[in-house]
Design a protein around this nucleic acid. Structure first.
Lengths: 120, 120
DNA sequence: CCTTGACTTGGAGTGACTCCAGACCTGTAG
DNA sequence: CTACAGGTCTGGAGTCACTCCAAGTCAAGG
């Protein structure tokens, strides 16, 4: 399949996919005889994983390391597991931040309610 | 108090505070006779709120609008409330993303377990 | 044959910082 | 009194992770 379909299936924009390929986060994609990229189902699975990792804040450098391990085959599974575990940790921290921010907002909104209550 | 203390109390770096002042997200801070910024407790409260808003992904443009309303006084409380409610919505979406990503990671980690199980 | 539309590349632009050079005070130690 | 360290100032360059654009190629439809 071509880049637009790969984009809708993975969630990444066509530009981002090309950019990731240039940066080595996505392996060089096969090309058809006309020079267009032809994506395999594995490519899509990889892109979709990248979509979630970046959406939840994994930095590019870490994605690059992850991609490097991925290209080196199954021997690197322990390293890859470590990277994912580290990211899980990050997710927990982010969730704590969200909860903390919700509290701050609730406090602010309550203050607004008091101000508006006074006015009316 | 001066900028380093404002930084540790709010969580924003001194550079970011200066950058926010240039961008109008923070009102112009009072200066002492030597030209150094002197932060009031209100300044700190505002910076701390900004710290949480940006940490949870509010874009700068929205912070600018929020700051503009803030400087226009209590009459703009309804608009400010709307912005915060919109951000609350964003928080919920982000939390859903985190949860979804945790599922994806759990699935991947389980796949790694199967691979390693085969090897050993 | 001509147009439409998806795709290609390289490069410029954007958002939100982050870092740095060089200058200026202020306070302490010698 | 001088030397030096520490904190702050400004303006501007650098970074990260895209995002958009111009100019070109190609394939299919009318």
């Amino acid at each position: 399949m071509r880049i637009s379909e790969a984009s809708t299936k993975s969630g990444l924009s066509a530009d981002t996919i090309r950019f990731y390929e240039k940066s080595g986060i996505v392996p060089p994609i096969e090309r058809g005889p006309e020079g267009l990229r032809r994506f395999s189902p594995e490519n899509i699975e990889w892109l979709t994983l990248l979509y979630w990792l970046r959406k939840t804040g994994m930095p590019m450098k870490e994605m690059q390391r992850f991609a490097l391990f991925y290209r080196q085959g199954e021997a690197t599974v322990p390293q890859r597991r470590n990277l994912l575990l580290k990211h899980e940790q990050r997710l927990r921290e982010r969730r704590a931040d969200l909860v903390r921010c919700e509290e701050v907002l609730a406090y602010k909104l309550a203050a607004y309610d008091r101000i508006e209550g006074k006015q009316s």
